[in-house]
Nucleic acid binder design. Structure first.
Lengths: 254, 254
DNA sequence: CCACATTCTCGTACGTCGTACGAGAATAGC
DNA sequence: GCTATTCTCGTACGACGTACGAGAATGTGG
């Protein structure tokens, strides 16, 4: 095995997503053999368009192939498997976050802006929360945005690991929140579903064993826009972030 | 169609999870016809055991059926589809959160205890974060625990909707965090994978375009136990929670 | 005791998925 | 041109969720 220098997009063998560099560090060297008829970029874009239009479940290898005008198995020359294609999709749309707006220097404001951009991206690509919870992507665009977020946290007296944690916390929150936000919006489409659920909750609340739930549901309920709700959550989270360096390291097993 | 009074566990027809009450409010009335050979409980327990042992992907209708000693299609007498079975699984393990420990009255401490119990449950059932991000379950056990969490928030001057939001925020955080925690632990199993990723990140950080990332990775890096990291996150989140009632309601469309 | 309606069991079968395999077409260097 | 290399993609396989419907078991009314 002559240790080929540099990897092709395809490279049929190899574990699913075993080595990130195999996926992201590919200077597409090969200048021999048949000329590729498609491109990783085009295939990824087709997959994204499909997911935008018909949801993540509609992204099948067959459907993507049909959309780019390729045979199904040709896709495997550009991505070793579907999981990799999904990672490519995530990084592809993350490119829409770049270049990021300049920082203002107020780390709280900058962090909130980061979260708002993430949310906007997810609303534009409603499959994104689901795609993000199932994997962790470290592509060029995702990393560039991470770089930006870390720059926003520069004024904070935290060490590097803690800043990464804060970013992870924020991203997790946005993903989770927007995921639920979209789920709710989708349910509203079928009114009976939402009504049935409300009915059911009312039934449960009325059984006497859930007084707090009953109280919560009986709230005056001034309805907020999703934007306002998100902002309120975000404020709660960011304004209150404990920014002290953190306690002394705990001993493993302690 | 004679409007049958009360629904059987089975009830073959009916949309997937259209009506929560169809699923959760079933006093298993039917005392006619052949006696059921299995039970929803036993099937759910088998599915949970399978997921605990071999992961969520191993939970196929065929595998669950084999485990309980039933024919595959018999499962459909107890749950209308696989999605429902997954909801039953989530509620089943949520029963381990009950009865909850008594509240101490300090809402921050009580809320942290809620989160810690959630995390412990997820560590016991590593498939749970993935199962939770894909659906929202409103079974008896989940709702009982929600009731407990709302009781913990009793001292807060928030309205009902806001308290539900806080719970959702907390649950979303725990789910996301433990999901990543487990993913990292799984990667450590295969050391090359983790090493390759670290290598890749180092490569990226060394390219000069990611100074903040380089700084973050070069941190002294006193390693924390997962417990300590979780606690630090949780403290950051809960200690800082903005508990003011919130701004005036925004007008829809504003 | 006997239909008969009801309810459960589950073998078979269908359509869909991801993808392994490998034959053929295109290209570059000799 | 010959050959090694690379890409294309038809076919095929095993797994999945689940629709269908025949058969077995049970209660009730005659």
């Amino acid at each position: 095995m002559p240790a080929s220098p540099g990897d092709r997009p395809g490279d049929r063998p190899g574990a699913p997503g075993a080595d990130p560099r195999r996926l992201w560090l590919t200077p597409d060297r090969p200048r021999r053999g048949r000329r590729p008829a498609f491109s990783r970029e085009a295939i990824t874009a087709a997959a994204v368009a499909l997911a935008d239009a018909e949801g993540l479940d509609a992204v099948t290898m067959r459907a993507v192939a049909a959309r780019v005008g390729a045979g199904v198995m040709s896709l495997y020359s550009y991505a070793p498997d579907k999981e990799t294609l999904l990672e490519l999709m995530v990084d592809h749309v993350s490119g829409e976050l770049l270049p990021p707006a300049p920082l203002c220097g107020d780390w709280r404001a900058d962090l909130k802006a980061v979260a708002r951009h993430q949310r906007a991206l997810m609303l534009r690509h409603p499959w994104l929360p689901a795609a993000l919870t199932a994997r962790r992507t470290l592509g060029p665009h995702t990393l560039a945005f991470l770089e930006h977020a870390l720059a926003a946290l520069r004024p904070l007296p935290l060490d590097g690991a803690a800043k990464l944690e804060v970013f992870s916390l924020l991203t997790g929150f946005v993903t989770s929140h927007v995921g639920h936000e979209l789920a709710r919006a989708a349910t509203v489409d079928s009114v009976d579903r939402a009504a049935a659920e409300a009915d059911y909750l009312a039934t449960v609340a009325a059984d006497g064993h859930h007084p707090e739930l009953a109280r919560a549901l009986a709230a005056p309920g001034r309805p907020l826009t999703p934007e306002a709700t998100f902002t309120r959550f975000l404020d709660r989270l960011v304004d209150g972030l404990d920014t002290r360096p953190g306690p002394e390291a705990a001993r493993p097993g302690g």
